[in-house]
Design a binder for these strands. Structure first.
Length: 494
DNA sequence: CATAAGATGAATCACTAA
DNA sequence: TTAGTGATTCATCTTATG
């Protein structure tokens, strides 16, 4: 069935040609680089000439759903040199002031009789801390080893205590997650918007057999954490014992790299098999050049040795296992195989998150109410459930229908006694809706979620636009909602 | 139309030698 | 202090296939 016409396969009998195939990519790279650069240059020039900075900012704010009038005021107040995050800062503060005003007792409200009121309110806004006044604060750096405030498998915790900024202290508890290796300044901005809490950077390789470098901003206690049991396999060989038989001695990997949203191609696996087979003629190990090529590809695509000379990408159920989800968690409900990889690649590593959330168990013996934003396939819910923390009310926001179905299905499978309410659009969660839900079951104990990383992660070649990117800017909705829940609950608590 | 496969680099950091 | 090397990375788009 395999056609022998294909130019890159036809001559693989001889060793030199195998290597030619293997390295054929290199000869093109400089050419395509030039194309990319000139194209990008043209695009940028066009962009700058057609739209002014102000118009760009206005467009951006409008796309985020802010009224044009408020955006104009923000730009006027922040000045023409204001960055996006400064503008957003201002808009958030304006919204906070508005919401707090709404929840003031009627007799304490200022009169809304004149147009002057609104302007005055903006002038009195407490603008959140300025966008770094050039090197006044050192930028956030990633810890090495990346164990955050401690992991169960390392003997000594990095930090045993911390003091949270006053503004950050709950209720509610909040827990925010995103990729650790974001563009410069992104974590500084996110930390600033989340009450200046220092992010906790953790690599999930200390919890399971695959790396996953993530940052978490949360106001949870960090004393007396405990891991989920049983501890998951923490090396490739423990997780995949059958691969040991085929594992080359020169493949020194003990951990897999980060699971992403797609897997290696079958053709790549076949190229590796042919290269390996051709090398069998040599005594002992293949040449170093071949070893390096094969090992580089294995690392890049997270391949396992599943047979003689046979390297293969991970299966969907292996994704589930490594990420800490129950077997077949994403199976059924009409989801395609491609989408299972995508959903799993975007999920929490359950053991890691559960370790952080474990401190809630003693605090809420009667269960908790959770506001779960960007829920995906329900990593937070699974973590809390496996910790044995009853889920009384879970309000989940998830845009993908198949993901909502997966969470709903898990909810039914596990015979949950509580209520699961789901939304598909985070914009639906406004002050009124949140107020109504908080009144109905007495507030949220935990607001948890990881906003879209696709504009932040290095694996995005096309739209790595940073925190202001089309999807990753939904971070500001996470902030908006935590702010809202905080202010509503503090007013209810009086 | 839905699904799957294949092709598509750069940003960032740690590290090292000059 | 600086320039170079090596390693890693919750993706997007087009095309083929049925």
């Amino acid at each position: 069935m395999e056609p022998s016409i294909s130019s890159d396969d036809s001559s693989s009998q001889c060793n030199e040609n195998v290597l030619d195939d293997v390295y054929e990519d290199d000869s093109w790279s400089s050419d395509s680089d030039n194309c990319m650069n000139s194209a990008k240059q043209t695009y940028l020039n066009d962009d700058n000439s057609s739209l002014s900075e102000n118009e760009n900012s206005l467009l951006f704010l409008a796309n985020m759903g802010y009224p044009a009038e408020e955006a104009s005021i923000a730009m006027e107040r922040c000045g023409p040199e204001a960055s996006f995050s400064e503008l957003i800062d201002f808009m958030c503060a304006a919204q906070m002031a508005r919401e707090e005003d709404v929840y003031l007792p009627e007799d304490e409200k200022p009169k809304l009789n004149s147009g002057g009121y609104k302007r005055k309110m903006y002038n009195e806004l407490p603008v959140r801390k300025k966008q770094r006044a050039i090197t006044d604060e050192e930028p956030i750096h990633l810890p090495r080893p990346m164990i955050g405030f401690g992991v169960p498998t390392e003997s000594l915790p990095a930090i045993v205590q911390r003091t949270l900024p006053e503004q950050a202290i709950g209720p509610p508890f909040f827990y925010y997650e995103n990729v650790a290796l974001a563009p410069k300044g992104v974590w500084d901005t996110m930390s600033r918007f989340l009450y200046d809490v220092e992010p906790e950077f953790v690599d999930s390789k200390y919890f399971c057999a695959t790396a996953r470098k993530r940052g978490y901003i949360h106001n949870l206690p960090i004393e007396d954490r405990f891991p989920l049991l049983p501890l998951p396999p923490r090396t490739i060989h423990e997780a995949f014992p059958l691969t040991k038989k085929w594992w080359p001695s020169w493949d020194t990997r003990t951990k897999l790299n980060c699971l992403q949203t797609s897997i290696g191609s079958a053709r790549l696996a076949d190229r590796i098999r042919k290269a390996m087979k051709a090398m069998e003629n040599f005594d002992g190990e293949p040449p170093l050049m071949v070893q390096k090529y094969v090992l580089d590809e294995c690392r890049k695509w997270n391949l396992l040795w599943v047979g003689r000379n046979k390297a293969s990408p991970l299966e969907t159920d292996e994704f589930e296992m490594l990420m800490g989800f129950p077997r077949n968690h994403t199976r059924g409900g009409g989801i395609s195989r491609t989408d299972r990889y995508k959903s799993l690649g975007n999920a929490f590593q359950v053991d890691t998150v559960a370790y952080h959330l474990s401190v809630l168990k003693d605090l809420y013996p009667n269960g908790i109410n959770v506001l779960s934003l960007f829920s995906g396939i329900g990593g937070a819910e699974v973590a809390l459930y496996r910790l044995g923390i009853p889920l009384n009310n879970v309000v989940s926001v998830e845009i993908s229908e198949v993901n909502r179905n997966i969470l709903r299905s898990w909810w039914e499978q596990t015979n949950q006694k509580g209520n699961l309410i789901d939304f598909n659009d985070i914009q639906q969660l406004n002050g009124d809706v949140l107020e109504q839900m908080i009144d109905s079951f007495g507030g949220f104990d935990l607001v948890i979620g990881g906003s879209p990383c696709n504009n932040l992660t290095g694996s995005n070649r096309v739209t790595r636009d940073g925190l202001e990117g089309k999807d990753s800017s939904l971070f500001y909705d996470y902030v908006r909602i935590v702010d809202l829940v905080k202010s509503i609950m503090s007013n209810r608590r009086v």
